[in-house]
């Protein structure tokens, strides 16, 4: 038994070193297609690479938007700048509450917003957080917060992508931003992404219901506690989705849950959107839809949440 423990210890030590070496050689020499568990996103779909670079240059803003694509494709910062609010949109693709928490820990103190607009999308609450973790790892700095989050998500793709991103951060130069326009999307200063696409009526076939992932629930709760402890005013917003998508959600359960965490505005009940004119898919607004939503939002902001 004593010999087994000794051999096991020696093997663990030596194999860890050899494994590390194998990974380093792989990162340096092998193409991504032979390392299928490393999800290198690079120039991400949601412009996270540019957004995270821009946020580093800001401080003391008026409004901070957080959330998924419904945030960064739903709140056009130009609409807020034009009425004198200094706004930044820190939303990102499939941003889970666990990822939001990392971003808050990194940027909240510097940004010091007067108001946080926290976009809440039902599906995000049941998300395992793998995709948003990969997005963050690939496009922002890698620090101990990523390691802690990777342990919470506990997925081999996240671990390997994290190891690769850390290696890249330590030993390689940062990628330069190549373009502010990708496909039909254009990154607008302030974090918003404008989509140049015609409206398209699509009927959602989602199954009715709503589920809650424990990790997301606890992260969401901690984020709210963070706002409260920092004395930062916040509101929770459900951005408009198409009527068929809205009907597929277990609204009673979802709304009751969200309401228990603060001031909640469901814009599906406030804004009068047209499924054929204002959406390009079941839950994303066209630019016309965004402008209409933002106008309604600014009314609520001035009437109920006035900060200036």
């Amino acid at each position: 038994m004593k010999r087994f423990i000794k051999d096991f210890f020696i093997f663990s030590l030596v194999s860890s070193l050899i494994l590390g070496l194998f990974f380093l050689v792989g990162f340096e020499l092998l193409p991504f297609r032979v390392m299928p568990n490393i999800k290198y996103i690079g120039e991400g779909y949601g412009f996270s690479d540019i957004r995270f670079k821009e946020v580093d240059t800001l401080n003391d803003i008026d409004i901070l938007f957080l959330g998924s694509s419904h945030a960064y494709r739903g709140f056009d910062t130009r609409n807020f700048d034009s009425i004198g609010f200094r706004a930044f949109n820190l939303g990102s693709s499939a941003q889970t509450h666990d990822e939001t928490q990392i971003l808050l820990k990194r940027y909240l103190k510097e940004l010091n917003p007067k108001l946080v607009v926290y976009e809440v999308f039902p599906n995000v609450f049941k998300n395992s957080g793998i995709e948003s973790n990969l997005d963050l790892i690939n496009n922002d700095i890698v620090d101990y917060l990523n390691f802690k989050s990777a342990l919470r998500v506990n997925n081999i793709q996240v671990y390997q992508t994290l190891a690769h991103a850390y290696y890249k951060q330590k030993f390689k130069s940062q990628n330069k931003i190549k373009s502010y326009t990708r496909s039909n999307d254009t990154y607008i200063k302030g974090g918003y992404v404008e989509k140049a696409i015609k409206p398209k009526y699509t009927h959602s076939t989602s199954r009715k219901g709503w589920e809650l992932n424990e990790l997301q629930k606890s992260s969401f709760k901690q984020n709210i506690e963070m706002f409260n402890s920092e004395n930062i005013k916040y509101i929770l917003v459900f951005a408009p989705v198409s009527s068929s998508y809205y009907e597929s959600i277990d609204l009673k359960k979802f709304n009751n849950f969200i309401r228990s965490y603060g001031n909640y505005y469901d814009f599906n009940r406030i804004s009068n959107m047209n499924d054929s004119l204002h959406f390009y898919d079941p839950h994303h607004l066209t630019q016309e839809g965004v402008d209409k939503f933002n106008t309604d939002f600014i009314h609520i902001l001035k009437d109920h949440v006035l900060i200036k």
């Binding site: 991400g44 779909y45 693709s93 499939a94 395992s128 995709e131 081999i156 390997q160």
Partner: peptide
Amino acid sequence: FNFMVAEETPFIYF
């Protein structure tokens, strides 16, 4: 580690 199939994660960016 390199080839193990992780939980199926269809990218939901779209």
